[in-house]
Amino acid sequence: MPDIRKVKRRIKGVQNIAKITRAMEMIAASKMRKAQERGLAGRPYSEKIQQVIADLAALPDIGLQHPLLQRRPVEKVAVVHVTPDRGLCGGLNANLNRRLAGFILEKKSAVSVVAVGRKGRDFSHRNGLEVSAEFIQIGDHPGFLETLPISRIIIDDYSKGEIDMVYISYAQFVSTIVQRPAMKQLLPVEPAVIPRAENVDYLYEPGAITVLGGLLPRFVEMQIYHAILESIASEQSARMVAMRNATDSANELIGDLTLLYNKARQEAITRDLLDITGGVAALE
């Protein structure tokens, strides 16, 4: 027979857990919406810059002259690994880290990691990966400026020839329920092939190559910024779903425990009654 007081205490405890997970679910939902909005707000910029780079790269005389566009034999690869700082978001962290591990195992060349986010950093350290830089606690709503140091490091290393290829690994936001670990090539920049809608011959000031040289780093910065925003949206929606499941489980447990509690209570009452009637019968 279960101890009634213990069951009661347990119910209280589970109720408190349910309250917390419910609050966390709602916080995650609002943060997710914000991250999504910020991602959308930057879309015009990213579309425009992509189009201009495609236009410029298609010019015959510039072609692939810029170092950020040139492919070279790959000896060393870097991965910008974007992960959340915190847990409690279902399998998201594990999936991201597994994707990174799988990627490193299938690469023949040496791979170094630029860890963005605590979970990925800890994973890389634990498994003895080479971590060339780490950025943690960038928060839930980083500004564009705060993400610039990340791009500066990889562009510098790439220009110095210390790394020959850069990928970014982040949590792609497919829908509220589905987030997929994704791996995208950052450098060398592969200009999107966008059919030129109208054939306009631009005047380039001071010159096409200079303009392209200014745009390419911006493009990389923007891609990193967007990957981080998307990862945040993914993290928050993963957390939202995980917390909703936790709340549901807690409520279910509360139901089971309440049933147990009522049964135990009823049994105790019956037993007391039996005692009393037994006592009365003995007196007569």
Binding site: V52, V200, D201, Y202, L203, Y204, E205, P206, T210, V211, G214
Partner: peptide, 13 residues
């Protein structure tokens, strides 16, 4: 740089 309508296509820093 002053730009009025019907300016020639231009791309500058």
């Amino acid at each position: 740089l002053g730009i009025l309508p019907h300016h020639a296509p231009l791309m500058t820093i």
